[in-house]
Each structure stands twice: as structure tokens, then as C-alpha cells.
């Protein structure tokens, strides 16, 4: 449910998200014009038309299901986040006005989720990936896939947060159904984006070369943003995890002897011996961040 229909959001959420989207779009329009110049109109028009057309293609997933591209990460990779935001806003606008896919009153919220947070986070993740992994074909594909997965998950979390703030649903079901659903959808989006970027890299690398490489100052900014993203995801998971998860339920039902032999986790059930949930969350965030940082350094050292 990335496109929220009308009737789901409260007035303060509609007003707040519309204001935030307007501010972000104004910045995006300025930055995009600076980056693309007078080529902006034709390039944005072509990519907008492509995103519409690509959404009509169903990719087989191999389990009797298929998925279509959402396109946020792809446009962030091809055009950069600012121009990408404008493309996705154009797509959302047409979907709301012509096809009634997503509400007109909820357009601000949908723009904030899909165009601003979705494309923005994809752009940031892609930059982190390229800064950390390098600019080889494999690194570019992995960075694009990762950007697609993280941005889809962030879109899901944003939708869940807006539904909760509107007082429509309680926090846990919103996070599990909407946030969790998008984490799964994000896997398909990551695969599709990765495949497309791989093909573009092999056949038309000039399309990707338009992007400027990340500077050292950017790395500090993207690392800070990455920390914020990881923190948000982990705290959200912490909130959603007071119920047993699928694995725990399955183990409980099977009364598996294997389960009883497992070593207890140091921060089981997100509880720390000192400070409870929040300290456990902070330790988890730090640990995840250190692991990611370590992996990045290791990959950088292996690079020739």
C-alpha cells in the first residue's frame, strides 16, 4: 500500500506531509535544474514515460508470482535523487489524477513517502554503496539493489508511521503488515533494479557515468544518514517484536529439542541487563553499524 488512498489520513498528517513535500520538491526543482540545465525537460519526460511503461512489465519471480518495478531506486541511480524526486512526483500526480491510484488529498503523503523519502534514501544508499564498494560493475549492481531494498523498506515504514499518526491503526499491526510487507516487496524491487542496472552497465554505461562520484565530504554525510536509517529500522523492529515471530512460533509448536540447545542471545527479547529496551536498541544499532562499517573497509582493502 505505497499509494495511500483518500480517507485513511487525518488532517494534521495531510497538512504536515503536504508541507514537507512542497519544501522538498521546491529544493528538488532547484537542484535538478542546476544539474540538468535545459536538458531537464526532455530527460525527465523520457524517464517519466519509461517508469510508466516499465510498471506495465511483469517480471516472473519463479514461485508462481510476478512483480513490477516501482522505479524509485532506478531513477535515483540514473538521474540522481533530486531529478528522480521530480520524476516520481510526476508519476504519482498522473496516477492520482488520471487513474485514481492514490488519493488526491493524500498526494502530499504519497509524495513524501515514495518520491522524497523513497528516492532520497535510494540516492543516499547508492552513494554509500559506491563510496564503499567502488565503481566496478558488481559494486554498482549491489549498491543499486541495496538502495532499492532499503528505500522500499523506508517507504513502508513511512506509510505505517502516517497511518499510526492518523490514529487509524495501532503501531504494531501497522509496522508488521505495512512495514513488514514492504521489506518483502523490497527484495523483488532490489532484484529487478539490480538486473536493470547490470544490463545498463553492460550495454549503455554512459547513462550511469552521468552521476558524479561521491566526494570525501559526502561520505561523512552519507555515513551519518546511514546510521539514522539503521537506527530507525532497528527501533521499529524493537517496537514490533513483543509478539513471538514466525520462527519462535514454529519452534514453540514443534517443541524442537534443537531450540532448547541454542545459546541464549545476549540481548534476548531486546532487553539489556541495564537500561532495558532502549539500551538494547542502542547496542544493536551500534553493533549493526560497526559490522557494516567493517565490511565496507574490508571490501575497500580488497579492491585493487
Amino acid at each position: 500500500m505505497a499509494h495511500i488512498p483518500d480517507g485513511f489520513l487525518s488532517m494534521p498528517v495531510i497538512a504536515g506531509t503536504a508541507t514537507a513535500s512542497l519544501a522538498a520538491l521546491a529544493t528538488a526543482a532547484r537542484r535538478s535544474r542546476a544539474a540538468l540545465g535545459e536538458r531537464e525537460g526532455p530527460v525527465l519526460g523520457a524517464v517519466t514515460a519509461f517508469v510508466f511503461a516499465a510498471q506495465m512489465l511483469n517480471f516472473p519471480l519463479g514461485i508462481g508470482a510476478s512483480a513490477h518495478l516501482l522505479g524509485g531506486a532506478l531513477v535515483a541511480v540514473l538521474l540522481g535523487p533530486w531529478a528522480g524526486m521530480l520524476v516520481l512526483f510526476a508519476v504519482l500526480l498522473v496516477q492520482a489524477l488520471l487513474f485514481q491510484d492514490g488519493g488526491i488529498a493524500a498526494l502530499g503523503a504519497n509524495t513524501l513517502n515514495v518520491a522524497v523519502l523513497g528516492v532520497g534514501s535510494a540516492g543516499v544508499t547508492y552513494r554509500i554503496g559506491r563510496a564503499g564498494l567502488g565503481e566496478t560493475r558488481g559494486a554498482t549492481v549491489v549498491a543499486a539493489g541495496l538502495a532499492a531494498w532499503i528505500s522500499t523498506a523506508i517507504v513502508g515504514l513511512a506509510v505505517a508511521a502516517e497511518l499510526v499518526l492518523s490514529g487509524l491503526v495501532p503501531l504494531q499491526p501497522a509496522l508488521l503488515l505495512v512495514g513488514g510487507g514492504h521489506v518483502l516487496i523490497g527484495i523483488a524491487e532490489a532484484v529487478l533494479t539490480g538486473l536493470l542496472v547490470d544490463f545498463v552497465f553492460r550495454t549503455r554505461p554512459a547513462l550511469l557515468a552521468r552521476r558524479t562520484p561521491a566526494a570525501r565530504g559526502d561520505r561523512i554525510r552519507v555515513v551519518a544518514l546511514a546510521g539514522a536509517v539503521v537506527a530507525t529500522v532497528l527501533v521499529a523492529v524493537g517496537f514490533a517484536s513483543s509478539q513471538p515471530d514466525v520462527l519462535e512460533t514454529a519452534l514453540a509448536r514443534l517443541a524442537s529439542p534443537v531450540g532448547s540447545g541454542l545459546t541464549a542471545a545476549p540481548l534476548a527479547e531486546y532487553q539489556s541487563p541495564v537500561g532495558g529496551l532502549w539500551v538494547a536498541g542502542a547496542v544493536g544499532v551500534l553493533a549493526a553499524f560497526l559490522v557494516a562499517w567493517g565490511l565496507t573497509i574490508a571490501v575497500q582493502r580488497r579492491r585493487p
Binding site: 535545459e38 519509461f50 518495478l69 529487478l192 538486473l195 549503455r204
Partner: peptide
């Protein structure tokens, strides 16, 4: 087959993307 079909659709989408950019340049 699923894998070949997936590669085919990816190739079609990527080719369309390339042509969209070429068309954008011509239009410009």
C-alpha cells in the same frame, strides 16, 4: 522458462530505457 524469461524482460526493459534516453536527446 522462468530464468530465461526474466533475463529477456530485463533486456527488453533496459533496451526501452536506452531508447527512451536516445529519444529524449533527439527531442531536445
Amino acid at each position: 522458462g522462468v530464468t530465461r524469461r526474466r533475463h529477456l524482460i530485463t533486456a527488453i526493459a533496459a533496451a526501452t530505457l536506452g531508447r527512451a534516453f536516445v529519444r529524449a536527446e533527439r527531442t531536445h
